[in-house]
Design a binder for these strands. Sequence first.
DNA 1: TCTGGGGTCCTAGGACCC
DNA 2: TCTGGGGTCCTAGGACCC
Length: 416
Amino acid sequence: MYALVDCNNFFVSCERVFNPSLNGHPVIVLSNNDGCVIARSNEAKALGIGMAVPFFQIRQLVEKHQVVVFSTNFTLYGDMSDRVMTVLSELVPGIEVYSVDEAFLHLRGLEKLREQVENIARVVTKSTGIPVSVGVAQTKTLCKVANHFAKKYKGYEDVCIIDTEEKRIKALQQTEIGDVWGIGRRHRNMLEYHGVKTAYDFTLKSRAWIRSKMTVVGERIWRELNGQLCLEREDVDSGKKQICTSRSFGVPIVGYDRLLESIVALAALGVAKLRKQKSLAKGLYVMVQTNRFDDDMYKSSRFITLSYPTSDLAEIAGYCRKMLNQLYVNGLEYKRAGVIFQDLIKEENAVRDFFDPVDREKQSRLSDALDSIAGKYGREAVKIAIQGEGYQPNIKQTYLSKRYTTNLKEIIEIRV
DNA sequence: TCTGGGGTCCTAGGACCC
DNA sequence: TCTGGGGTCCTAGGACCC
């Protein structure tokens, strides 16, 4: 049996841990640039504040109901996520971290299932302050269904278990097709057009029909809902397959030099992630874009395959410049840019090439030195010249909370 | 005025090879 | 007149997720 543990309103819950007076009040967390809503407390949901709604559209509502607003604080949420995952991994034989606020657990046998799972939830909340919901079933997709019920209906007390055929059918009959994991807006419309309203209707269609309409992706969902496990264990050690760093700019960027600085700064963030998982990139992708809500939006990208895989920022910055030369159109206001590293390989699998013009040993020693300085003094301490002095992240964070758990200067204060 | 960021997986279709 | 066909690799883009 699998269990899906999902942190309730995760980012809001993180803020509440350090600010318990927020309990019972409507709270929301905003995306980068304070652009739109990415987390809501139950009270905020009850006010009708939707997910991903632009902040400016709900300003009045926020003022009227005194909704407490936070800018996104990923340093804090990332650290809290690590804590939750650590606690979970100590409680069960196997864990697959699926996202910042969710993990699939491999349960210990079937005995006292409910007791076992309730205990997991209790321990997590007690040791981290984060409330969770748990869905238990035979397949991951059914766990998602169960989790949905655990969240939706008070009666389950945060734990829903689907362990009989009867419960499976009943749960699927009460699940709208659009709420099934893996069914997005497109497929929902298509399925509803064909009379498939619930998850149960979906399972009654023939496998061949599903496959012809939705490829193997749909077929997997169909099998999982029917109780056949097909989303197997993820390879935990594999690391990310691509690393993507992109930003929207609060203030648009004009001019080649500023844009290049921003792109290299994004590449620097990506390189940090790349080096952390000890990978090298063979493919590099750079993207620039003007305002996506304009009719005449300009969006363009370039991809190159590197002759020699690397994680060296100076070298990558050189490629960024080459690609930007091809992408750049003078006079535009750029609102967004991104750098993606693809075709990642592990450092230890890199093959030294006789014709490689770069001394990789030396380059690697330099990068290691930079990493260790960054480790002590922060990523801002050392930069390469092309990043420029003037580059600011250019991000609005009006309602930022403190980094309670990772920065000594911002540690929680207790007054008595 | 103001509209996120980081991922995964799959397919179609072109290029190229034998 | 008749003008192969199968395999593989690559890339762009769709769809979805949190």
